[in-house]
Simulated assay, not measured.
Amino acid sequence: MYFISGVDIVVRDLTRHTHHSAWHTMHNVICGGARAQDRNLEALAAAGVPVRVVHGDADQVVPVECSSRHLKSKLPHAELRVVGGRDHRTVVFGREEELAQELRAF
């Protein structure tokens, strides 16, 4: 059997996890990844680049407390828009026109 470099290690590692531990590992990677971007976010803030963060309040892939609130702490002038009843996918899908209008207005 042939594997793409590193993929076999990742697959083997993932299969050793329970659903619970895999979820927490992914969650930590996502949250940790957001924190790794702090210098970039601070540069955007210093440059005064306008930013709007649109996030679903029911997002379980990237929870609001990990992503949007962290971004907002690094970009204090960013607009944080938490959309009620929407998750990671439905914050966009099913409300494309509304989101497009919102972004155009921004």
Rank of each mutant, 00 (worst) to 15 (best):
Ala34Ser: 06
Ile4Met: 08
Asn28Thr: 02
Ile4Glu: 11
Glu102Leu: 09
Val92Cys: 05
Glu65Cys: 13
His88Val: 05
His17Phe: 03
Val92Glu: 06
Ala46Glu: 02
Ser21Ala: 11
Gly85Leu: 03
Cys31Pro: 00
Arg104Leu: 10
Ala34Gly: 08
Gly94Ala: 11
Phe106Ala: 07
Lys72Asn: 09
Val53Leu: 11
Val82Ala: 02
Ala78Glu: 01
Val92Ala: 08
Ser21His: 05
Asp8Ile: 11
Arg95Leu: 09
Gly94His: 08
Val91Cys: 02
Phe3Ala: 15
His77Ile: 05
Gln60Arg: 14
Val53Arg: 01
Leu41Cys: 02
His88Gln: 09
Arg89Thr: 15
His55Asn: 10
Phe106Asn: 06
Thr18Ala: 07
Gly56Val: 05
Asp13Ile: 13
Val61Pro: 01
Glu65Arg: 12
Gly84Pro: 06
Ala78Cys: 01
Ala58Thr: 15
Glu98Gln: 15
Gly56Glu: 08
Val10Cys: 06
Arg39Leu: 07
Pro76His: 03
Glu102His: 10
Lys72Pro: 01
Ala100Leu: 09
Val53Gly: 03
Thr15Gln: 15
Val82His: 00
Asn40Ala: 07
Val82Cys: 01
Ile9Pro: 05
His17Leu: 04
His19Phe: 11
Ser67Cys: 11
Gly85Pro: 03
Asp59Met: 11
Leu41Thr: 00
Met1Phe: 15
Ala43Asn: 05
Gln37Tyr: 03
Pro63His: 09
Phe93Ile: 12
Gly32Gln: 04
Ile4Trp: 05
Val61Gln: 10
Ile30Leu: 04
Arg16Ser: 12
Val51Gly: 00
Leu80Cys: 05
Phe3Thr: 15
Cys66Leu: 09
Val91Ala: 02
Met1Asp: 15
Asp87Tyr: 03
Leu41Phe: 02
Cys31Ser: 12
Pro76Thr: 10
Asp59Tyr: 06
Gly48Trp: 00
Leu75Asp: 01
Lys72Met: 11
Asn40Cys: 04
Val64Asp: 09
Ser5Phe: 09
Gln101Ala: 13
Met1Arg: 15
Gly33Asn: 00
His24Trp: 07
His27Gln: 06
Gln101Cys: 09
Asp87Asn: 14
Ala78Ser: 04
Ile30Ser: 02
Ser5Glu: 13
Thr90Glu: 13
Cys31Arg: 08
Arg69Leu: 13
Arg35Pro: 00
Asp87Ile: 04
Asn40Glu: 04
Ile30Ala: 02
Gly6Tyr: 04
Gly85Tyr: 01
Leu14His: 12
Ala43Ile: 02
Ala47Gly: 04
Asn40Ile: 01
Asp8Glu: 14
Ser68Tyr: 01
Glu96Arg: 07
Arg52Trp: 03
Trp23Ala: 13
Ala46Gln: 03
Glu98Trp: 14
Val64Lys: 06
Ala58Tyr: 10
Lys74Arg: 09
Val91Glu: 02
Cys66Gly: 08
Val92Arg: 03
Met1Asn: 15
Arg35Ile: 02
Gln101Arg: 15
Thr18Arg: 09
